[in-house]
């Protein structure tokens, strides 16, 4: 990010990034806005045409008044529609990592300098539209989603913002650049767990002394974060308090996952298999490490560890982000 954060600027847009170029917020307001009649707009116009014909045929001045009032209303509504999208400002979007094939959801806040509360639909070029009602003048949470196809970094194109406010007869559309990146993990592909010894066994001997899954070794006082399935409900039901059952893994042998242990498979498929193994090991609460080319994640457990490993998988082969 190069200096596009303007300190103190109240405008959200100021924080958006565009192709590394430094720009001022006002630049975004010059975006062209496309306005088209919706199909109801066409129906409405057809109705007006029919009424106008009727008024002309009967030479009915009340009919003329009616047609021109409704026509003027449709015309003026275009300006309202245009305004609904022209005064929008978006914050940078946040998104949680997803697995390939899942839907990446980008959450952001929208603000309008208008007091109106139009319904606005947001859509990435290849995504589906989602509609949110703006709270006039106040920031409104909104989100847009996109299918994450491949692992890696998902950078959606500009966000298409559309509104048919207020009458639904015309659609105003514009695209707003939005800073959004989503980390996409590989798609997990089930298969047997294949572990390899660590690159340096001696170094890892002490590390892997954590918790295993094989043998019950005793009870310990429950600590927040201990897996629920390991809680000793029997002793809890006896009124002895919360205890966690502890299991011992194979001491001294830490599990490492390494794509190289799956010969004969496509590289992406290997990553997918490893992804599955990581998730499995995490569910079993068996400590695991990751050995990926020249990168090494030491064995461990927990959410943070899992995400670190998955992130390595997601970005394998990418330039380090």
């Amino acid at each position: 990010m190069k200096g596009s954060v303007v300190p103190g600027s109240s405008d959200f847009q100021a924080r958006s990034r565009t192709a590394g170029k430094q720009r001022l917020p006002s630049a975004f307001l010059r975006q062209s806005i496309l306005i088209l009649p919706t199909r109801y707009g066409f129906i409405f116009l057809a109705m007006l045409a029919a009424l106008l014909l009727g008024a002309v045929n009967h030479n009915n001045n009340l009919g003329y008044l009616l047609v021109f009032l409704l026509g003027g209303m449709a015309l003026v509504s275009i300006l309202h529609t245009r305004r609904a999208v022209s005064r929008l400002a978006l914050s940078p979007a946040r998104s949680k990592p997803v697995f390939a094939g899942q839907k990446a959801i980008f959450a952001f806040t929208v603000k309008t300098s208008d007091s109106a509360c139009p319904a606005i639909s947001f859509q990435f070029v290849e995504g589906e539209p989602t509609t949110f009602i703006l709270r006039g003048g106040n920031p409104t949470s909104a989100q847009a989603s996109l299918n994450a196809g491949q692992r890696g970094l998902l950078r959606p194109g500009p966000l298409v913002v559309a509104a048919t406010y207020p009458l639904g007869l015309f659609l105003a559309r514009r695209s707003l650049p939005v800073h959004a990146i989503c980390l996409v993990y590989p798609r997990p592909v089930p298969g047997p767990l294949v572990t390899v010894p660590g690159p340096d066994n001696r170094e890892n001997e002490g590390d892997a002394g954590g918790c295993g899954v094989e043998d019950f070794s005793g009870l310990e006082v429950y600590q927040p974060g201990d897996p629920l399935q390991h809680i000793s409900w029997k002793s809890y039901s006896r009124g002895q308090g919360l205890y966690t059952k502890k299991f011992e893994g194979t001491r001294g042998k830490s599990l490492y996952f390494n794509p190289d242990s799956l010969p004969g498979l496509d590289f992406e498929l290997r990553l997918s298999r490893i992804c599955y193994m990581i998730l499995k090991a995490d569910a079993m609460r068996a400590p695991y490490g990751l050995h990926l080319g020249n990168r090494l994640v030491k064995p461990g457990l927990g959410e943070k560890h899992k995400h670190q490993c998955l992130r390595e998988l997601a970005l394998a082969g990418h330039k380090k982000a």
């Binding site: 021109f68 009032l69 026509g71 003027g72 209303m73 015309l75």
Partner: peptide, 20 residues
């Protein structure tokens, strides 16, 4: 909306050609 449409209505009503 109706109030804003009013000037359009007026202009059209006055100027739209009438046919006998």
């Amino acid at each position: 909306l109706l109030l804003q449409a009013f000037p359009f209505m007026l202009v059209f009503f006055l100027l739209f050609p009438r046919f006998q």
